[in-house]
Design a protein around this nucleic acid. Structure first.
Lengths: 148, 148
DNA sequence: AATTTCATGCAATGCAATTGCATTGTTTCA
DNA sequence: TGAAACAATGCAATTGCATTGCATGAAATT
Protein backbone atom coordinates (compact mmCIF):
# COMPACT_ATOMS: atom_id res chain seq x y z
CA UNK A 1 0.00 0.00 0.00
CA UNK A 2 1.38 3.41 -0.95
CA UNK A 3 1.70 6.29 1.45
CA UNK A 4 -0.94 8.16 -0.43
CA UNK A 5 -3.27 5.24 -0.21
CA UNK A 6 -2.65 4.90 3.48
CA UNK A 7 -3.44 8.54 4.24
CA UNK A 8 -6.55 8.35 2.15
CA UNK A 9 -7.68 5.37 4.11
CA UNK A 10 -7.01 7.11 7.38
CA UNK A 11 -8.98 10.16 6.39
CA UNK A 12 -11.93 8.07 5.38
CA UNK A 13 -12.01 5.62 8.20
CA UNK A 14 -15.74 6.11 8.66
CA UNK A 15 -16.57 5.26 5.08
CA UNK A 16 -14.22 2.31 5.13
CA UNK A 17 -15.83 0.96 8.24
CA UNK A 18 -19.26 1.20 6.72
CA UNK A 19 -18.13 -0.54 3.56
CA UNK A 20 -16.47 -3.34 5.43
CA UNK A 21 -19.52 -3.82 7.62
CA UNK A 22 -21.50 -4.51 4.48
CA UNK A 23 -18.84 -6.74 2.99
CA UNK A 24 -17.90 -4.34 0.24
CA UNK A 25 -14.26 -4.02 -0.65
CA UNK A 26 -13.30 -0.40 0.04
CA UNK A 27 -11.77 0.74 -3.22
CA UNK A 28 -10.91 4.37 -3.83
CA UNK A 29 -13.92 4.87 -6.01
CA UNK A 30 -16.33 3.34 -3.55
CA UNK A 31 -15.01 5.39 -0.69
CA UNK A 32 -15.40 8.55 -2.73
CA UNK A 33 -18.96 7.73 -3.69
CA UNK A 34 -19.90 6.80 -0.15
CA UNK A 35 -18.33 9.93 1.26
CA UNK A 36 -20.23 12.01 -1.23
CA UNK A 37 -23.45 10.30 -0.29
CA UNK A 38 -22.75 10.99 3.36
CA UNK A 39 -22.74 14.71 2.67
CA UNK A 40 -26.18 14.67 1.10
CA UNK A 41 -29.33 15.66 2.93
CA UNK A 42 -31.59 14.43 0.16
CA UNK A 43 -31.62 11.63 -2.37
CA UNK A 44 -29.44 12.16 -5.40
CA UNK A 45 -29.55 11.11 -9.02
CA UNK A 46 -26.75 9.50 -10.96
CA UNK A 47 -26.40 12.67 -12.98
CA UNK A 48 -25.96 14.91 -9.98
CA UNK A 49 -23.60 12.46 -8.42
CA UNK A 50 -21.50 12.50 -11.54
CA UNK A 51 -21.46 16.29 -11.69
CA UNK A 52 -20.64 16.58 -8.02
CA UNK A 53 -17.64 14.32 -8.01
CA UNK A 54 -16.00 14.86 -11.35
CA UNK A 55 -13.81 13.59 -12.74
CA UNK A 56 -15.38 10.21 -12.30
CA UNK A 57 -16.80 7.84 -14.80
CA UNK A 58 -20.56 7.75 -14.92
CA UNK A 59 -20.77 4.03 -15.50
CA UNK A 60 -18.46 3.25 -12.65
CA UNK A 61 -20.58 5.33 -10.31
CA UNK A 62 -23.62 3.54 -11.63
CA UNK A 63 -22.13 0.15 -10.89
CA UNK A 64 -20.87 1.30 -7.54
CA UNK A 65 -24.38 2.34 -6.60
CA UNK A 66 -25.71 -0.98 -7.79
CA UNK A 67 -23.22 -2.78 -5.61
CA UNK A 68 -24.15 -0.58 -2.67
CA UNK A 69 -27.78 -1.34 -3.23
CA UNK A 70 -27.23 -5.07 -3.35
CA UNK A 71 -25.22 -4.97 -0.15
CA UNK A 72 -27.77 -2.89 1.68
CA UNK A 73 -25.87 0.39 1.90
CA UNK A 74 -28.11 2.37 -0.36
CA UNK A 75 -31.67 2.19 -1.54
CA UNK A 76 -32.98 3.21 -4.89
CA UNK A 77 -35.91 5.60 -4.95
CA UNK A 78 -38.48 5.94 -7.66
CA UNK A 79 -39.99 9.34 -6.99
CA UNK A 80 -42.02 9.48 -10.16
CA UNK A 81 -39.75 11.86 -12.03
CA UNK A 82 -38.49 9.06 -14.21
CA UNK A 83 -34.93 9.28 -12.99
CA UNK A 84 -33.64 7.08 -10.21
CA UNK A 85 -32.49 8.61 -6.97
CA UNK A 86 -30.20 7.06 -4.39
CA UNK A 87 -29.96 7.55 -0.66
CA UNK A 88 -28.10 5.88 2.17
CA UNK A 89 -29.97 3.24 4.09
CA UNK A 90 -30.49 3.05 7.77
CA UNK A 91 -27.97 0.91 9.54
CA UNK A 92 -30.56 -1.80 9.87
CA UNK A 93 -30.52 -2.65 6.19
CA UNK A 94 -28.70 -5.73 5.06
CA UNK A 95 -28.02 -7.54 1.82
CA UNK A 96 -31.12 -9.69 2.03
CA UNK A 97 -33.70 -7.00 2.50
CA UNK A 98 -34.13 -3.30 2.71
CA UNK A 99 -35.95 -1.80 5.63
CA UNK A 100 -36.73 1.39 3.82
CA UNK A 101 -40.47 1.19 4.06
CA UNK A 102 -40.58 4.86 4.80
CA UNK A 103 -42.25 7.62 2.86
CA UNK A 104 -40.41 9.59 0.25
CA UNK A 105 -41.22 13.21 -0.36
CA UNK A 106 -40.73 15.06 -3.60
CA UNK A 107 -40.74 18.85 -3.55
CA UNK A 108 -42.42 20.25 -6.62
CA UNK A 109 -40.53 23.49 -6.14
CA UNK A 110 -36.89 22.64 -5.49
CA UNK A 111 -37.20 19.17 -7.04
CA UNK A 112 -35.45 17.56 -4.10
CA UNK A 113 -36.38 14.10 -2.91
CA UNK A 114 -36.42 13.50 0.84
CA UNK A 115 -36.41 10.31 2.85
CA UNK A 116 -38.98 10.77 5.58
CA UNK A 117 -37.53 8.11 7.80
CA UNK A 118 -39.98 8.83 10.57
CA UNK A 119 -43.09 8.61 8.43
CA UNK A 120 -43.93 4.96 8.22
CA UNK A 121 -46.30 3.65 5.62
CA UNK A 122 -49.61 2.67 7.22
CA UNK A 123 -51.48 -0.55 6.64
CA UNK A 124 -53.46 -0.66 3.43
CA UNK A 125 -56.58 -2.72 3.11
CA UNK A 126 -56.35 -4.75 -0.06
CA UNK A 127 -59.23 -6.50 -1.80
CA UNK A 128 -59.73 -10.20 -1.10
CA UNK A 129 -57.13 -12.39 -2.69
CA UNK A 130 -54.51 -9.73 -3.11
CA UNK A 131 -51.23 -10.45 -1.35
CA UNK A 132 -48.84 -7.79 -0.19
CA UNK A 133 -45.11 -7.85 -0.86
CA UNK A 134 -43.59 -4.38 -1.07
CA UNK A 135 -44.82 -0.86 -1.54
CA UNK A 136 -43.73 2.56 -2.64
CA UNK A 137 -45.27 5.75 -1.36
CA UNK A 138 -44.25 9.13 -2.68
CA UNK A 139 -45.81 12.28 -1.33
CA UNK A 140 -45.47 15.43 -3.41
CA UNK A 141 -45.79 19.01 -2.33
CA UNK A 142 -43.53 21.70 -0.95
CA UNK A 143 -40.76 21.06 1.50
CA UNK A 144 -40.05 23.09 4.60
CA UNK A 145 -37.42 25.23 2.92
CA UNK A 146 -39.67 26.12 0.00
CA UNK A 147 -42.58 27.11 2.20
CA UNK A 148 -40.85 29.44 4.61
CA UNK B 1 -70.99 12.31 -43.01
CA UNK B 2 -70.80 8.92 -44.71
CA UNK B 3 -73.06 6.05 -43.89
CA UNK B 4 -70.15 4.21 -42.44
CA UNK B 5 -69.26 7.16 -40.25
CA UNK B 6 -72.80 7.47 -39.06
CA UNK B 7 -73.08 3.83 -38.06
CA UNK B 8 -69.79 4.04 -36.27
CA UNK B 9 -71.02 6.99 -34.31
CA UNK B 10 -74.22 5.24 -33.43
CA UNK B 11 -72.43 2.16 -32.20
CA UNK B 12 -70.16 4.21 -30.04
CA UNK B 13 -72.64 6.57 -28.50
CA UNK B 14 -71.33 5.82 -25.04
CA UNK B 15 -67.80 6.77 -25.90
CA UNK B 16 -68.97 9.86 -27.73
CA UNK B 17 -70.97 10.96 -24.75
CA UNK B 18 -68.04 10.56 -22.45
CA UNK B 19 -65.77 12.52 -24.75
CA UNK B 20 -68.24 15.35 -25.12
CA UNK B 21 -68.74 15.51 -21.38
CA UNK B 22 -65.07 16.22 -21.03
CA UNK B 23 -64.98 18.69 -23.88
CA UNK B 24 -62.97 16.48 -26.18
CA UNK B 25 -63.89 16.46 -29.83
CA UNK B 26 -64.90 12.89 -30.65
CA UNK B 27 -62.75 12.01 -33.61
CA UNK B 28 -62.59 8.48 -34.95
CA UNK B 29 -59.23 7.86 -33.33
CA UNK B 30 -60.30 9.10 -29.95
CA UNK B 31 -63.45 7.02 -29.95
CA UNK B 32 -61.44 3.95 -30.82
CA UNK B 33 -58.93 4.55 -28.05
CA UNK B 34 -61.62 5.25 -25.50
CA UNK B 35 -63.59 2.18 -26.51
CA UNK B 36 -60.49 0.08 -26.15
CA UNK B 37 -59.82 1.51 -22.73
CA UNK B 38 -63.38 0.72 -21.70
CA UNK B 39 -62.74 -2.97 -22.33
CA UNK B 40 -59.74 -3.09 -20.03
CA UNK B 41 -59.87 -4.39 -16.49
CA UNK B 42 -56.39 -3.19 -15.67
CA UNK B 43 -54.16 -0.28 -16.59
CA UNK B 44 -52.51 -0.52 -19.96
CA UNK B 45 -49.27 0.69 -21.46
CA UNK B 46 -48.87 2.58 -24.70
CA UNK B 47 -47.21 -0.46 -26.20
CA UNK B 48 -50.04 -2.81 -25.38
CA UNK B 49 -52.56 -0.27 -26.54
CA UNK B 50 -50.77 -0.03 -29.85
CA UNK B 51 -50.62 -3.79 -30.25
CA UNK B 52 -54.24 -4.19 -29.28
CA UNK B 53 -55.67 -1.74 -31.75
CA UNK B 54 -53.49 -2.01 -34.79
CA UNK B 55 -53.29 -0.53 -37.27
CA UNK B 56 -52.99 2.74 -35.41
CA UNK B 57 -50.12 5.11 -35.15
CA UNK B 58 -48.26 4.92 -31.89
CA UNK B 59 -47.68 8.64 -31.65
CA UNK B 60 -51.28 9.46 -32.30
CA UNK B 61 -52.34 7.12 -29.52
CA UNK B 62 -49.76 8.76 -27.31
CA UNK B 63 -51.14 12.21 -27.98
CA UNK B 64 -54.68 11.00 -27.65
CA UNK B 65 -53.87 9.67 -24.20
CA UNK B 66 -52.22 12.94 -23.31
CA UNK B 67 -55.31 14.82 -24.34
CA UNK B 68 -57.48 12.43 -22.35
CA UNK B 69 -55.29 12.95 -19.34
CA UNK B 70 -55.47 16.72 -19.57
CA UNK B 71 -59.22 16.61 -19.86
CA UNK B 72 -59.63 14.28 -16.92
CA UNK B 73 -60.70 11.16 -18.80
CA UNK B 74 -57.65 9.12 -18.02
CA UNK B 75 -54.97 9.08 -15.40
CA UNK B 76 -51.38 8.14 -15.87
CA UNK B 77 -49.95 5.57 -13.52
CA UNK B 78 -46.35 5.20 -12.53
CA UNK B 79 -46.21 1.70 -11.15
CA UNK B 80 -42.46 1.57 -10.82
CA UNK B 81 -41.83 -0.57 -13.87
CA UNK B 82 -40.53 2.40 -15.79
CA UNK B 83 -43.25 2.37 -18.39
CA UNK B 84 -46.34 4.49 -18.07
CA UNK B 85 -49.71 2.89 -17.71
CA UNK B 86 -53.08 4.48 -18.40
CA UNK B 87 -56.49 3.84 -16.93
CA UNK B 88 -59.86 5.49 -17.13
CA UNK B 89 -60.71 7.92 -14.39
CA UNK B 90 -63.74 7.92 -12.21
CA UNK B 91 -66.50 10.16 -13.43
CA UNK B 92 -65.60 12.69 -10.79
CA UNK B 93 -62.35 13.67 -12.46
CA UNK B 94 -62.21 16.90 -14.35
CA UNK B 95 -59.66 18.91 -16.26
CA UNK B 96 -58.48 20.82 -13.23
CA UNK B 97 -57.66 17.92 -10.97
CA UNK B 98 -57.62 14.19 -10.80
CA UNK B 99 -59.39 12.45 -7.99
CA UNK B 100 -57.43 9.29 -8.39
CA UNK B 101 -56.01 9.20 -4.92
CA UNK B 102 -56.51 5.50 -4.82
CA UNK B 103 -53.97 2.75 -4.47
CA UNK B 104 -52.43 1.05 -7.46
CA UNK B 105 -51.45 -2.55 -7.29
CA UNK B 106 -48.77 -4.20 -9.37
CA UNK B 107 -48.76 -7.97 -9.62
CA UNK B 108 -45.23 -9.32 -9.65
CA UNK B 109 -46.47 -12.45 -11.34
CA UNK B 110 -48.78 -11.43 -14.19
CA UNK B 111 -47.33 -7.92 -14.40
CA UNK B 112 -50.76 -6.35 -14.46
CA UNK B 113 -51.44 -3.02 -12.80
CA UNK B 114 -54.74 -2.61 -11.00
CA UNK B 115 -56.57 0.47 -9.83
CA UNK B 116 -57.83 -0.33 -6.36
CA UNK B 117 -60.51 2.31 -6.39
CA UNK B 118 -61.83 1.25 -3.02
CA UNK B 119 -58.50 1.41 -1.22
CA UNK B 120 -58.04 5.00 -0.28
CA UNK B 121 -54.68 6.32 0.76
CA UNK B 122 -54.66 7.12 4.47
CA UNK B 123 -53.38 10.29 6.03
CA UNK B 124 -49.64 10.53 6.26
CA UNK B 125 -47.98 12.52 9.01
CA UNK B 126 -45.41 14.79 7.42
CA UNK B 127 -42.62 16.59 9.25
CA UNK B 128 -43.21 20.20 10.23
CA UNK B 129 -43.15 22.57 7.34
CA UNK B 130 -43.87 20.03 4.66
CA UNK B 131 -46.98 20.67 2.61
CA UNK B 132 -48.97 18.00 0.91
CA UNK B 133 -50.13 18.18 -2.70
CA UNK B 134 -50.44 14.79 -4.31
CA UNK B 135 -49.27 11.29 -3.65
CA UNK B 136 -48.60 8.03 -5.36
CA UNK B 137 -48.88 4.70 -3.62
CA UNK B 138 -48.07 1.47 -5.38
CA UNK B 139 -48.46 -1.85 -3.61
CA UNK B 140 -46.73 -4.84 -5.11
CA UNK B 141 -47.46 -8.47 -4.60
CA UNK B 142 -49.68 -11.11 -6.15
CA UNK B 143 -53.16 -10.44 -7.41
CA UNK B 144 -56.21 -12.57 -6.74
CA UNK B 145 -55.91 -14.48 -10.02
CA UNK B 146 -52.27 -15.34 -9.44
CA UNK B 147 -52.82 -16.64 -5.93
CA UNK B 148 -55.73 -18.98 -6.51
C1' DA C 1 5.48 -15.31 -10.30
C1' DA C 2 1.41 -16.97 -12.39
C1' DT C 3 -3.42 -17.42 -12.32
C1' DT C 4 -7.69 -15.96 -11.25
C1' DT C 5 -10.94 -12.78 -9.73
C1' DC C 6 -12.69 -8.26 -9.30
C1' DA C 7 -12.98 -3.19 -10.48
C1' DT C 8 -12.79 0.28 -13.86
C1' DG C 9 -13.41 2.94 -18.19
C1' DC C 10 -15.06 3.60 -22.69
C1' DA C 11 -18.19 2.49 -26.30
C1' DA C 12 -22.41 0.83 -27.71
C1' DT C 13 -27.11 -0.68 -27.18
C1' DG C 14 -31.94 -0.52 -25.94
C1' DC C 15 -36.19 1.29 -24.70
C1' DA C 16 -39.59 4.51 -23.87
C1' DA C 17 -41.07 9.33 -23.85
C1' DT C 18 -41.24 13.32 -26.42
C1' DT C 19 -40.87 16.82 -30.20
C1' DG C 20 -40.71 18.76 -35.26
C1' DC C 21 -42.76 19.11 -39.29
C1' DA C 22 -45.53 18.30 -43.16
C1' DT C 23 -50.17 16.71 -44.50
C1' DT C 24 -54.87 16.17 -44.04
C1' DG C 25 -59.26 17.03 -42.22
C1' DT C 26 -62.45 20.33 -39.87
C1' DT C 27 -64.31 24.61 -38.40
C1' DT C 28 -65.04 29.59 -38.96
C1' DC C 29 -66.11 33.58 -41.08
C1' DA C 30 -66.55 36.84 -44.73
C1' DT D 1 -69.48 28.87 -51.10
C1' DG D 2 -64.66 29.51 -50.71
C1' DA D 3 -60.76 30.88 -48.38
C1' DA D 4 -58.36 31.30 -44.22
C1' DA D 5 -57.50 29.53 -39.55
C1' DC D 6 -57.20 25.86 -36.68
C1' DA D 7 -56.92 21.08 -34.98
C1' DA D 8 -55.69 16.24 -35.60
C1' DT D 9 -52.86 12.84 -37.64
C1' DG D 10 -48.78 10.29 -39.30
C1' DC D 11 -44.02 9.72 -40.00
C1' DA D 12 -39.30 10.68 -38.85
C1' DA D 13 -36.09 12.04 -35.67
C1' DT D 14 -34.40 13.20 -31.15
C1' DT D 15 -33.72 12.95 -26.37
C1' DG D 16 -32.72 10.99 -21.91
C1' DC D 17 -31.81 7.57 -19.19
C1' DA D 18 -30.70 2.76 -17.78
C1' DT D 19 -28.09 -1.04 -18.97
C1' DT D 20 -24.69 -4.24 -21.14
C1' DG D 21 -20.21 -5.77 -23.72
C1' DC D 22 -15.70 -5.80 -23.90
C1' DA D 23 -11.01 -4.76 -23.05
C1' DT D 24 -7.69 -3.06 -19.74
C1' DG D 25 -5.77 -2.67 -15.18
C1' DA D 26 -5.43 -3.66 -10.29
C1' DA D 27 -5.68 -6.75 -6.45
C1' DA D 28 -5.86 -11.15 -4.13
C1' DT D 29 -4.84 -15.99 -3.90
C1' DT D 30 -2.07 -20.06 -4.86
Amino acid sequence: MSGHEKSRLLSSAVADQRLLQHKVKPTAMRVLVLEYLLTQQTAISLNDLEKGMQPADRITIYRTLKTFEQKGLVHLIDDGTGVHKYALCDDACGPAEHHDLHVHFYCNNCKETYCLSDSKIPEIALPDGFGFNEMNLVVKGHCDKCRS
